[in-house]
């Protein structure tokens, strides 16, 4: 019997199509999710008044609970855009990737992940990642192939590439936070404001605490003299702007970075 005491939602084809399409995406921005919801109502039940997105998703999540799956909301680390991903709570996230990647490719991801986590900036250069290809488990991988595999990770939204450097995509953070905390308890960083896993952000030059950029933006919003929330020393970084969906033009987070890595080869 259902063990949850929470009220169980009711699934209709509107919800089912929504879930199916969200699943093929892996991760979506809030505006895309809202668009998707509208689309699903249009297909199945055009006369119905659409639930508020939050209620719509809560309803689905109440049904997904017994399957240890959840539609999770997060924000991108760089500019704080809200994103949604279907997250698996029962098994390790890497097993989700396991059906898409070969053993040596998964190991390449793991190596990249370790470099990213160990780095000060939250970025690992492609050169440093590619230097590890000789140590991969499984079938031998050449550097050229490894470059393509890294691009595949970018396209499937596990990694983000910026100017030849790689960091974790918001999707990977949503799906892997627990895994990463479990695997690398000594090297993970957390945000002083939201206490979530932090890959990239700003840090206090005096006491060393770190903050997500969107958390910095919110915390120091309209504060002309930002000081560290921990040691109260002057906060010497540029304060980013709070994400504003109204001001948004084209979303940028999940646009594939097609920049060739070739020029960075050595």
């Amino acid at each position: 019997m259902q063990s949850s005491s929470r009220r169980m939602g009711v699934m209709t084809d509107v919800h089912r199509r929504f879930l199916q399409l969200l699943m093929t995406h892996g991760v979506m921005e809030e505006r895309e999710v809202a668009h998707l919801q509208k689309h699903c109502y249009k297909v199945h039940d055009s006369s119905a008044t659409a639930d508020k997105l939050e209620d719509f998703i809560n309803n689905i999540n109440s049904v997904l609970e017994s399957l240890y799956i959840e539609i999770k909301k997060g924000i991108t680390e760089d500019d704080g855009r809200p994103i949604y991903a279907l997250v698996n709570l029962a098994t390790t996230p890497v097993s989700k990737m396991a059906s898409d990647y070969a053993e040596n490719e998964l190991d390449l991801f793991r190596k990249a992940l370790e470099l990213i986590i160990d780095s000060e900036s939250g970025f690992a250069s492609s050169t440093n990642i590619l230097n590890l290809v000789d140590q991969l488990k499984g079938k031998r991988m050449r550097k050229k192939e490894a470059e393509q595999v890294l691009q595949k990770f970018v396209q499937n939204k596990w990694l983000i590439e910026k100017e030849g450097e790689f960091t974790l995509h918001g999707r990977a953070i949503l799906e892997m936070e627990q895994y990463i905390r479990g695997m690398y308890p000594d090297s993970v960083k957390t945000c002083n404001i939201c206490h979530g896993l932090l890959i990239q952000g700003q840090s206090c030059e005096t006491c060393g605490i770190r903050m997500h950029l969107p958390c910095v933006a919110k915390y120091f919003q309209a504060n002309p003299e930002p000081h560290c929330p921990h040691c109260n020393d002057y906060w010497p970084h540029e304060i980013p702007e709070v994400f504003d969906p109204e001001k948004e033009g084209e979303p940028t987070i999940s646009r594939p970075h097609r920049k060739s890595l070739r020029s960075r080869q050595h």
Partner: peptide
């Protein structure tokens, strides 16, 4: 369920 991973969620 046995790995280092702790499942989240309220279950």
């Amino acid at each position: 369920a046995g790995g280092s991973q702790e499942p989240r969620g309220s279950a």
